[in-house]
């Protein structure tokens, strides 16, 4: 059974395939649903192209849900935060991690 996650992006076009660092929320039902993780993960537009992959739903900055899920295989879980000062753009900080 594939696990399901959701991530938020400013625009779908800003998300790339390949190995990425991103915040994901775990959609496993139960009292810890929506728990956040920062992960390094392999992403693919076509879920079936990723062996042993899970599903990644994508929402925009307004919460708009893109109709088609991507594939994700988590490679490494990182501490759930990135360097930066309050009110700085978290996406810019994520980019600097790469």
């Amino acid at each position: 059974m594939k696990r399901e996650y959701v991530t938020f992006v400013r625009r779908l076009s800003s998300l790339d395939e390949g190995v990425q660092t991103l915040f994901i929320k775990d959609l496993t039902p139960g009292p810890r649903k929506y728990d956040t993780k920062l992960v390094r993960a392999q992403l693919a537009r076509e879920p079936e192209s990723l062996s042993q992959g899970d599903l990644l739903w994508i929402r925009s900055e307004t919460g708009y849900l893109h109709p088609k899920a991507w594939g994700i295989r988590v490679l490494e879980e990182l501490p759930p935060h990135v360097p930066g000062q309050p009110w700085q753009d978290v996406f810019a900080s994520l980019k600097n991690l790469k």
């Binding site: 938020f8 956040t36 360097p83 000062q85 978290v90």
Partner: peptide, 13 residues
């Protein structure tokens, strides 16, 4: 409130 670390917040209705 941490001075040197941030994480994803929002969006919210």
């Amino acid at each position: 409130v941490l001075p040197d670390r941030i994480a994803l917040e929002g969006p919210f209705g």
